[in-house]
């Protein structure tokens, strides 16, 4: 186990010794308008950004050419070459891979008439353009190339669910107003009106004069009493009792009621038949 590990470390050390810096040769940027007129063409310096910053109009084209060389001046094709567009203010960024030939030559074209999808949304602030080089054999390199002004992009389309990621307006519930009892006078009038049927009933009964001669006889009265007790129990239920209690008491009360009812109604039936049979 020690053997392969030490060999790996040794080879890494060799690589570290071999690693060297990649640099750009004759980097150049060109800005041309849509009718192919050159608006600007100048070499880039890796030490400091070009001034004034590069500005592109809606139809201009930016062309960036360079050759990647090692310190011997030989063209190198790094394994990874990226241009990064970064808006420092909004934090938006985009990465554009760059094709590099075997001889290290590279060309990046940015046509604003058809901007690549890697170009981030732009605002008033400049987009910083930088170059990233990655290679197995060389040190990684990063070069700040220039600041770029492009026409501001359209505001991004709002996502359909965007509204759910912000506080919603507060919900105010509206309730139906509390119902009120009518005025005392109206209630009193209708209470009196409800007494009217009782007057009618009592008047009619007095007129008809039904006879209940056996109501208090020993056979009938227990039935009447238990029925009255049932009504009393229900009133008590309304006033005070719980459902379980009233069911229990009702079940108990139902037994004497049934017995008394059977006796009373049997007596009534006998009397009726006895009365009618001689007929």
């Amino acid at each position: 186990m020690v053997g392969p590990l030490s060999w790996l470390l040794a080879s890494l050390a060799v690589l570290a010794v071999q690693a060297s810096v990649l640099t750009l040769q004759s980097p150049r940027l060109t800005v041309s308008s849509s009718d192919a007129a050159q608006l600007r063409s100048e070499p880039l310096s890796l030490a400091h950004k070009v001034t004034p910053p590069v500005e592109l109009r809606a139809t201009d084209t930016l062309k960036l050419t360079f050759q990647i060389v090692d310190e011997d001046g030989k063209g190198v094709q790094p394994h990874q070459t990226f241009v990064r567009f970064y808006d420092e203010v909004t934090g938006e960024e985009g990465i554009q891979p760059v094709k590099v030939t075997a001889g290290g030559k590279a060309k990046l074209e940015l046509n604003m008439a058809r901007p690549p999808s890697s170009l981030p949304p732009s605002g008033k602030d400049p987009i910083k353009v930088s170059l990233y080089l990655g290679s197995f054999k060389h040190d990684p390199a990063q070069y700040e190339l220039f600041d770029l002004f492009v026409p501001p992009s359209q505001p991004p389309a709002q996502h359909a669910d965007e509204v759910f990621f912000h506080p919603r307006p507060e919900i105010f519930h509206t309730f139906r107003p509390e119902q009120k009892v009518p005025p005392k006078f109206v209630s009193a009038v209708f209470t009196l009106l409800l007494a009217a049927p009782w007057v009618v009933l009592l008047g009619l009964l007095a007129h008809i004069g039904p006879q209940v001669p056996y109501l208090f006889s020993s056979g009938i009265f227990p039935f009447i009493a238990t029925l009255g007790a049932f009504e009393g129990l229900l009133v008590w239920y309304w006033v005070d009792l719980h459902l379980g209690q009233v069911l229990l008491y009702g079940a108990i009360l139902s037994i004497p009621t049934a017995i008394a009812g059977k006796r009373a109604l049997a007596a009534v039936g006998e009397r009726r038949l006895g009365k009618s049979s001689p007929k």
Binding site: Q179, P182, L194, A196, P197, V200, L201, P210
Partner: peptide, 27 residues
């Protein structure tokens, strides 16, 4: 006739209660 008197009484009571519900309130 006694039962009929009771029926009339019930009908009148129901009508008055229904009128109260419709005209005044069902609170």
């Amino acid at each position: 006739k006694t039962i009929d008197a009771f029926l009339v009484f019930l009908m009148l009571s129901g009508i008055i209660q229904f009128l109260y519900c419709v005209l005044i309130t069902n609170f």
